[in-house]
């Protein structure tokens, strides 16, 4: 997961740095923020799922 995140963010950053249009740079930059937020939410959701499954098993 972390490796994919790094690859995704680095690739977006690299495209952003090569880009000359300010609007397209802004969109690539926003995509980086979305990817970071996805990571956070996926981790939170996995944590919540783990917690609820444990409860169900009566631990």
């Amino acid at each position: 997961m972390e490796n994919y995140d790094d690859w995704l963010i680095n690739e977006l950053k690299s495209l952003e740095q090569e880009e000359t249009s300010f609007i397209q740079r802004a969109i690539l930059n926003e995509a980086i923020d979305i990817v970071k937020e996805q990571t956070k939410r996926i981790e939170q959701a996995k944590g919540e799922l783990d917690g609820r499954v444990w409860d169900k098993q009566g631990w």
Partner: peptide, 13 residues
Amino acid sequence: MIIDQIDLRKAEL
């Protein structure tokens, strides 16, 4: 490739 990954992660979430 980036779009595919963002889409996959969207589906995962």
